[in-house]
Amino acid sequence: MTIQAGVSGHPIAHSLSPLIHTTWIEAAGLDARYVAHGAESAEAFAALLDRGRAGELRGLNVTAPYKEQAFAAADEVSDAARLVGSANLLVFENGRLRADSTDGYGLMNALAEQAPALDVAGRSVVILGAGGAARAAAGALALAGAQVRIVNRSRDRAERLAADLGPAVAIAEGSTAFSGAVLIVNALSVRPDLDVGLLDVGTVVMDMTYRPLETPLLARARARGLIGVDGLAMLIGQARPSFEAIFGRAAPATDVRERVLARLGDAA
């Protein structure tokens, strides 16, 4: 029987997850389908979860705005999902729903791949933003031993994030927020206004955005001689444990990044 899986969010047509997972499915020779499931409302997303519980789906990746709803609907949640209060991965089994968050794994995987010399343990890192993406990044970096600083226009939201994640996460403001930081992560959905001249030599700059792949922030950082880490590495990194959880095997080694770059229209 064909394994049915996919990704859901709103909007969802832009998602690269079907391309990534289908590339791995084909390379592994699996009898499976991974497609985008549009859900224009919370009620529509709940109905999709009901289909999963009924056995129509093996697994589902979740993107905005349904990650918190996915977490709340689960019968079982991983430590990573509990830490950030949301889920981007759901696995259906015998009518039950298991939730996990692989975004933090994706971030750490991207750093290991594109900035292998970086060690955040005991060091200061800065996250721009305080939304769901920032929460996942902060959780993963705090677990890795970093001292996390949150820089966000809305102090209230930043305070909630810091309170939820504990003493390893604090709020920072002004130009001194970047002093001594070994890593800057942009988790904002809008273009950040960051003067890379404020950053120490050797600072790694990561942008979670992958459209465009070379964001203005990464371009400015690289022009100054800093190491840049792109959002596509994180996207593929978070997809790997999702594939394994849904299909029961590791993602095969294949040219998935090249295929995604071709879709995006960027040069490798």
Rank of each mutant, 00 (worst) to 15 (best):
Y105A: 15
T203C: 14
S242A: 15
R33E: 11
D50S: 11
G52W: 06
G85V: 12
L141D: 10
A142N: 10
R259F: 05
P11F: 02
L183W: 04
Y34K: 11
A99P: 04
E26H: 00
R249I: 01
T102S: 09
L232Y: 00
E76Q: 05
A112M: 06
V205C: 05
G122T: 07
G85Q: 12
T63Q: 07
R51H: 09
G197I: 03
D156L: 08
G106M: 11
R153F: 03
R33A: 11
T102W: 00
A144L: 06
V201R: 14
E26M: 00
A168T: 13
R153Q: 11
V169R: 05
E43L: 10
A140M: 10
A181E: 07
A268P: 10
G85T: 09
S41A: 08
G29R: 05
R249Q: 15
A162S: 15
S189F: 09
P252G: 09
V201M: 07
V77T: 15
I3F: 05
L16G: 02
Q4T: 14
N61E: 03
Y34L: 08
G231W: 02
A187K: 05
D119H: 07
A268C: 01
L199T: 12
R240H: 07
K67M: 05
A137M: 12
V148Q: 09
L235K: 07
V77D: 05
V201K: 14
L107N: 13
D266K: 00
A170K: 14
R82H: 10
G145H: 11
M234S: 05
Q114T: 03
A239P: 03
T254I: 06
F71G: 02
N186G: 11
R96F: 11
V190I: 10
S179D: 15
G180P: 11
P18K: 02
G145T: 13
A144I: 09
R220F: 01
